[in-house]
Design a protein around this nucleic acid. Structure first.
Lengths: 234, 234
DNA sequence: ATGGGGCTGTATCGCAGGATACGGTGGTTG
DNA sequence: CAACCACCGTATCCTGCGATACAGCCCCAT
């Protein structure tokens, strides 16, 4: 049994009082292990600190850039704008995560955009400055590889679950992934049905419908605004 | 206008004679730039060569392993077996590509399986042996990062297109990606409708139907067994 | 020569999810 | 306090995909 705080705006009833308190908290869909963070911070003097206002763009899809970012505080939404104008939310990167390394290292235009959703502080690294650091600290290269490969894993897993047509499977994948971000502590995630729809490739209406159905089937439960996953391996 | 050789078993007619000749050729959905390949081959004495029989398993989903592989010749199918038993084909990795680095570097169990579809030769590297090489040759670390990030890009792109519900968009994404593997030369890709279905998350019947429709709409064409993409940017 | 297996082509049926619309509720802004 | 906005809940309609079944074709093994 895993509990994740899903601050949905209103779940079959009026807003609970605490929800308005929770909203401004930082809610990320990602976290890195502390040893990875420590290894990266060992080299923070290679980068330079940047502060972002709410809704400020960090980088845009199509840009050419060799920069990547360590998020020190705040929340960065990474997404892809499709040709038809709709948005696919890839991740909400919170403090202690890395973003933008994909296009920085493969030297091709950005395949996603990143924008701060709340005032944020990031450390900007340039790939060209890393070669010396790699020579002195091979661990650093290993750590960056580890991060890149972790993202591969998440993307592959999401891809796998996208081949299921039933929205229920897609939503459960999202919730289980959120629960894995930090299974020990209770973290809060604030998503609208619209955002869930955009992350799972369904429609807003279907998210509402599916959440109802999942609750009726007992696969998820709501306690106040807290979403509870019921898993086989209890 | 881009042409890719898609050796479909039979396209509205009897098998063309040349198709039976083409079949044994190596048909991969991936290729790396030659400078990347050269950089990796500089360190090939770190790895050891392994030969695989047809349908031999290289690694299995769930395994714990710090090994990754450079494909010297042959063809490796990388796929995920879903809980319901169905298979999602991620890639067909041909000569000059890398596979298995995802789980090798992030130190978690394999999220995919890899099996040779034809007799193949791979070079097996262990991540633990790389630290020294990274110190001597920072470029090596950069190149591995580039490969890992390229895969991120492909996976993100596939994820993006999976959010489209129409099978037509999903198929076109696959074809365009295949065409990009090597736009200059004409490469052959041999896929059954079943495999296409498994790569795009639709059913076999729908693939057949959609191919018909795309041809009627003029978005693709067939010349013998060669599939021709008609793009806007002609 | 013959039968079996793998693949494509096609038809039918049922149903789930997208599109759309509208109402309700709470928060926000001035 | 009032008007507006963002979000959730729900109903209706309809398209289009999945499941299933079957036929035809080619290749290959025996």
């Amino acid at each position: 049994m895993v509990a994740i705080w899903l601050a949905l705006w209103s779940l079959n009833g009026p807003l609970e009082h605490w929800q308005t308190n929770v909203k401004p908290a930082v809610k990320s869909t990602w976290r890195l292990q502390s040893d990875i963070v420590r290894c990266i911070l060992r080299h923070k003097e290679l980068g330079k600190r940047r502060t972002l206002r709410a809704s400020e763009l960090l980088y845009n899809q199509g840009d050419e850039s060799r920069h990547f970012y360590f998020v020190e505080s705040g929340l960065i939404e990474v997404s892809i704008i499709k040709i038809d104008g709709t948005e696919v939310v890839l991740e909400l990167m919170g403090a202690g995560t890395i973003c933008g390394e994909g296009a920085a290292f493969d030297k091709l235009p950005r395949f996603s955009r990143a924008a701060a959703t709340v005032p944020s502080v990031v450390i900007e690294f340039a790939t060209g400055d890393l070669m010396n650091a790699f020579r002195e600290d091979g661990e650093f290269a290993m750590t960056l590889l580890e991060v890149a490969c972790l993202k591969q894993r998440i993307l592959a897993s999401r891809l796998e679950h996208m081949t299921y047509r039933e929205p229920a499977s897609r939503l459960m994948e999202l919730f289980e992934r959120l629960a894995e971000v930090d299974p020990s502590s209770e973290m809060t995630v604030s998503l609208t049905h619209e955002q869930i729809a955009s992350m799972t490739g369904t429609s807003r209406v279907t998210v509402t419908r599916t959440l109802q159905k999942l609750r009726e089937e007992g696969k998820i439960g709501f306690d106040g605004g807290k979403l509870i996953l019921r898993r086989e391996d209890d």
